[in-house]
Design a protein around this nucleic acid. Sequence first.
DNA 1: CGGAAAAATGCAATCGTTTGCAAATTGCGC
DNA 2: GCGCAATTTGCAAACGATTGCATTTTTCCG
Lengths: 346, 346
Amino acid sequence: MNEDKSADEKTGRGTVRTITDLARLAGVSPGTVSRALAGKSLVNTKTREKIEAIAREHGFRPNQMASGLRRQKTGVIGVVIPLGHDSRQQISDSFFMTLLGFLADELTRQGYDLMLRRVVPENDADWLDRFIGSGMIDGVIVIGQSDQFDRIEDVADGYGPMVVWGNHTEGQRHCVVGTDNRLGGRLAAERLIAAGAKRLAFLGDTTAIEFAARFAGAQDAARRMDLPPVMALPTHLSPERAAEEIAAHIAAHAGAIDGIFAATDTLAALCLTELHARGVAVPGDIKLAGFDDLPIARQTVPPLTTVRQDIAAGARGLVDLLLRRLAGEQTESLILPAQLVARQTA
Amino acid sequence: MNEDKSADEKTGRGTVRTITDLARLAGVSPGTVSRALAGKSLVNTKTREKIEAIAREHGFRPNQMASGLRRQKTGVIGVVIPLGHDSRQQISDSFFMTLLGFLADELTRQGYDLMLRRVVPENDADWLDRFIGSGMIDGVIVIGQSDQFDRIEDVADGYGPMVVWGNHTEGQRHCVVGTDNRLGGRLAAERLIAAGAKRLAFLGDTTAIEFAARFAGAQDAARRMDLPPVMALPTHLSPERAAEEIAAHIAAHAGAIDGIFAATDTLAALCLTELHARGVAVPGDIKLAGFDDLPIARQTVPPLTTVRQDIAAGARGLVDLLLRRLAGEQTESLILPAQLVARQTA
DNA sequence: CGGAAAAATGCAATCGTTTGCAAATTGCGC
DNA sequence: GCGCAATTTGCAAACGATTGCATTTTTCCG
């Protein structure tokens, strides 16, 4: 008991756990305490101050589970990363992680907590409904459509507070925030072409819809310039697999191409290393462009030409739209512009 | 109403929201439904199957808030990243993000959800108590001690289910999982010395306790070899600030040192770029070593000699210890070995 | 000082699930 | 078919905070 007491003195945990305990100490009813702590105007300033003082002294915090249950809202936003086309993508891909960081900051700023879930849709077809139906979250942000576009569309019909990071497709029903991937792809390809490349290749997994759009953009550029179609070189994102796949692609096609557009900077950096190892000059023999403008793009040798996504703006957009949907508003998707960052690989 | 119905048919949300709704449909009492869904042995197999069937058909999920409230446990583990010594560290430092990824996987595997919070202790002295006292989490994992060692120690006395990623200090009271930073620092310095360096410098912010230990390890090695003490070059982790700070350090000391031990690979990569820009040969003029063995360490030119931390093992350790503490066990800290990865910068 | 309006507080139901205990049902041996 | 034990079920009270409504207290004005 001595232990209990000293712990309580120091940390304030222990004696006053519930609003009722606090009410007893303050000599009022639990209802009044609730109102005082919620800062409602109905309670006398003096009583409020007294209650606040006792609360502070004992380090009291109202139980959010109980509060959530009663008010039918939790103050928690779910963030889910579906790992559809490539289970280990996220670990390697610092893009998603950076976005997550900004999201955490932005949600905190708005008074929400963040519940994170990574799911593997092929093991668990029900991933999105499960999360939404758990009763633990007020809304959900999906980071990346992966290969789950249809699943997300289905849910969007019946569930409002959802916003998705990804690619916008004409006529889709779920609200997305994302970069104009097709434009970005076109910009990258145009740059490669302007630098002298004529036979282009695309490095990435086009079953992911964002990447497919980047590929399509590159294809647009090639067609417009009357060049042969861009060759698709399927590549996973996990570093182990990507490295060998890239090596194989280059071994097979190095002579036949003179421009590579990589779906992400991470892949581009890997590709650069591999080209370097094989003695292929960049941008001399082969021009190279990436996508994302991650910190690594600045640090490769030579520094990487790439397409910039504004991650911070993306996070702000996601949260902003979600909050408006939470408030009952209907919202349109938000497409952020892509911007070419010309460095030295093309 | 038509809308409602069709939404329900597709997604199963709508009609059967509570266990009571389900009970009515099944013709039993809510208690029985609860037991059936929890898989308790007390309920007749036939009734259970019927209940499960109806639940599946309507996509019913029990409300976790209510369940949590009643059972006094939430199934959620809090993960908090204190941003003490450098507010933007996390965004740049892919180490923490990678650890977070593994943590998410490991917690999911164990049936827990993850609630993520980033806090700035200087705005909010109460950050840890607040999180713990929210009633939303069963336990907490703190990623990085930052400059909050004392705060964490205080809490550890009164609150069991907490495990911290960071550095272990003799006699501390909170349970930590982390790499043997001092050993790692020594290994790095020894390698620099073996490669011929005699006047070493340490790049990093030694107010962060993990970094201080790495620095101390390097100092040990220098002392043991009768070399002059390692020079401390304070550097923040955020890429913008780090870049200029490093440039300044190098401008000021390039001639006076021939070995640099960077507190993280990210800093090492930045440093390498800067040295390269100034025409300093690595490892010819200056030897360089990093820490972490992030993917980037493989991709610099030349590839980075560094000290490997086993991030996946760290995540497993954190979760394992936390679960044992949740079960009431007392646990010791877990120190993972550091391992030198010799590449080409030293 | 009386009385009505305004302000502050208390009461009790409620959110949805779990669980101890009591009641009802079933099974079984004779 | 009876009695007793073993299974299944139902009942109702929690968990802790919120809130509509009723009640009390205060304020203010004539």
